[in-house]
Each structure stands twice: as structure tokens, then as C-alpha cells.
Design a protein around this nucleic acid. Sequence first.
DNA 1: TACTATATAATTGTACACAAATATACTTTA
DNA 2: TAAAGTATATTTGTGTACAATTATATAGTA
Lengths: 228, 228
Amino acid sequence: MYTFDQNYTKRVSVKDVAYFEIKKNIIEGELLPGQAVIEEELATQLKISRTPLREALQRLELDELLIRQPNGRLKIAPISVKEAEEMFLIRILLEGVVVRQATDKIEEREIQQLHNNIRMCDEAAQAGRFDDFMNTSSQFHFMLYEISGNKTAVKILYQLNDHFMRYRRLVPAKNFHEKNSSKEHQRVLDYIIARDASNAEKAMQEHLIKSKKIALDVIRGYKNLDQL
Amino acid sequence: MYTFDQNYTKRVSVKDVAYFEIKKNIIEGELLPGQAVIEEELATQLKISRTPLREALQRLELDELLIRQPNGRLKIAPISVKEAEEMFLIRILLEGVVVRQATDKIEEREIQQLHNNIRMCDEAAQAGRFDDFMNTSSQFHFMLYEISGNKTAVKILYQLNDHFMRYRRLVPAKNFHEKNSSKEHQRVLDYIIARDASNAEKAMQEHLIKSKKIALDVIRGYKNLDQL
DNA sequence: TACTATATAATTGTACACAAATATACTTTA
DNA sequence: TAAAGTATATTTGTGTACAATTATATAGTA
């Protein structure tokens, strides 16, 4: 009945390519907050038809990276300080859960990977490679997401992360630079190694509260600039 | 430029009607967990074309009420005890936030509405109207969602609620009957009135932990039955 | 019989055309 | 001139046709 090789060539749909491409453009600020999105225009640019494009756009709308106006037109989601606050708060709670669950499940090999990540973070920081630092630093969190095995929480966290990445791009990378992030990650890892889930959670939440504050200052600054 | 009456006849799209209709069928168990979903079939039943149907199905997939298999086919999401546990845990956290924020913002009129809700709950329970009791009891939570004003958390909570409603339908309503739910709601409300956000949160979470336990027993029971 | 290969059918993915709704430009009217 | 009405253009919503993929049935081969 089953052949060993099932020839699963992972079919990449036009829809998904469009989704990730447009999302990238939103996050990186090629498409600006508030800007109108015209289906026909975008379809022409991406050289695809409106059918799969509309499915990609609907998904971005559900992600709240696009907003549908009462007249049915789409626009790139404006930056909202209130929403940003809500999202950071939820992140703090869910990432707390994730760390707790990761602590209970983590294996030696994964601990080593987290160690390596922290080292790479330090190296990037030393060398002044800000973007590299940010990406590597994010990876620390993502690794814990995967280790936790909590699909439901992780899905939400990744969605929130899309928004956080957009916030970052609002300002030059170095302004977002959190010098102590590595040390804070190390502290979380130390508790994880000690299998102390509740302190690991607490350490992570303290870390996130700090980055929340830094981020919100930036977002508020952008908002003020925006309103001039 | 603007006429007073803008003739905003809220355009109901075929897509949205399909989305809510299919969701209803999933939640109410007309479409069973694991069952295959064929686009053409459904389109014919609903007397619509595949284009808006596909958009409705994609949304249900993102809600995780539908699952896409590796071969591209859709099926009704199976019941997963693990996912259910994850969802209840997230609910407990987010609804904690919501209650805290609602406590800080609530107005006298809204307090009266919550009072009325509890009374209606008691009446339904007395009269043995189980479905009515469940619906009214849910309303208590939804009212707090709206009062909190936390759009981000509330969106997630409503999505989770779709799954919880489906779990409920797995078994006769009376098995799900939580006798003390009214009293627990009253306890939450008392703390809200006292503007004691942190105890209101705690009371709500204790309430939710109890209903989590009841629900998970039911779901585990269903799973066992399912595997025969 | 069990495995493979091939043809056929079923299903999903995409493009396109037209319908419905909304916005814009242009008149008309007071 | 300003407001309202009308015609035109733009944009979104839906149906349909066809392409690409996957599943199923059939036949061939060891």
C-alpha cells in the first residue's frame, strides 16, 4: 500500500508566498502604516492573480497587520500604542507559561543549544552587529517556544512577534539595543538548568518587562513623530 | 462632502455567512471531528461558489477548527486533550488580565448588568433550563471582556471559546452543569465592586480552574469513547 | 499473491470575467 | 459659490473554467 518514498514535494502555493512576501514588506516598513492596499495593484506587482492574493490578504487581516475599513478597503495597520501595550502584556503571560513548560521538558542537548545561542549573542554585541544581535537574541526565545511543545501558546506568540518586529523597524536598530539582554537570558537558563520552573518564569518575565518598557518608549516616540 | 445619512447598509458577504454557518455546524457537532471537508460538496450544499467558500474555510483553518492534512485536504479538527489543556490554561491567564482591567474601568450601569446576569443564571438553573443557563453564564464572561476594552486579549478569548463550545456539545448539557458557577460569579463581582482587582482576578481564575477540571474530564471521556 | 505501472477520477489551486459596491469627477441648480 | 444630483471610474465580491495535484481503480509483471 505505502511506498517508502511518497514523493512529498512540499507544494509551495502562490498564496503562501504572497502572504510571507507581503508580511515581510509590512514588517520591514516598505509598506507604511496607514497606507492603502489595492488588490489589483498588488496582484500586478507580485505577478499573481487576485484569487490567491485575496487569501493572503485575509490572513494578514486576521493577523491584524492589515485593517479593513468600513468601506471594505484594506490598509496597512496603523501603529497603536494601546494595542502594543496589550500585546506585550499577553506576551509576558504566555512566555511565562512557555518557559515553565520548557523547564520541565528540556533535554541536555537543548540546554547546550541555548548556551551556544547566548555566546553568539555576546559575540554579535561585542562586534557591534546590531541586527545580528537582535536576530540571535530572538532565537533564544523561539528555541524555548519549540522546547515547550505548547502549540497553542506558541502560535499566538509568533503572531505577536510579527508586530514586535515591525515596531523595531520604526527606529534605527541600535536604539533598540538591550545591552543586558544576554545576561538576562543567562539568568533564565540558569534557573532552567536548576529545573526551577517558577524562578525561570519569573526571570523571563522580568526580562520581558524591561524590553517592554524600552519598546513602548520607542513606539510612543514614533507615534508623536507620526502626528506632526 | 458628507451627507448626514451615509447609507451604510452593512454589506453581508457570502464569505462571512458561510464562515459563521460552517463554524456553527462544527461547534454543534453536525460536522464531526475528523470528518473530511470537500470544497465542491460544501459549496453545493451552501449554494455558493468555491471562491468565497475557500476564504471561509481558510479562516476556520486559522481558528484551528479545521485542519489541513499534508496532502492538502481539509478535515474537521479532531478533539485533542492536549490542545484543550493548553487552551484552558491560556484562558485562565487572559481572563485574569481581562477581569483586572475591567475592575479598573467598570461603571455603575455595567455593574447592574452583571447583577442581572447572575440573577438570570440562577433562574435558569432553578428551572432546569440547562442550555439557557450555559448561555447566560457565558454572557457574564463576555460582558467582562467588553468592559475590559482589551481588544487583543478578547479576540483570543473568543477564538478559544469556539473550541470550548464544541467540547460542551460532546456531551449532554446537564453533565456540564456547574452548580456553583453563579456563586463564583457573584464572588468575582463582589471584588469588582470593591475595586479589588487582584482578588477579582484570583476569584475568576479559581472559578475557571474548576470549570477547566470539569471540562477536561468530559473531553477525556469523549476521547476514550472515540477510540473504541 | 504482492508489487509496480498506468490510466482515470476526484480534489485543490489559480486565473479570469463579470457583478456589486464605492469613490471620484462632472453637472446642474439654488 | 455651495450643495445636491448624475455619470464615470475604481475597487471589491463572486462565479466559473481550467490547471495542477492527489487519490483511486485497473492492468501488468515477477
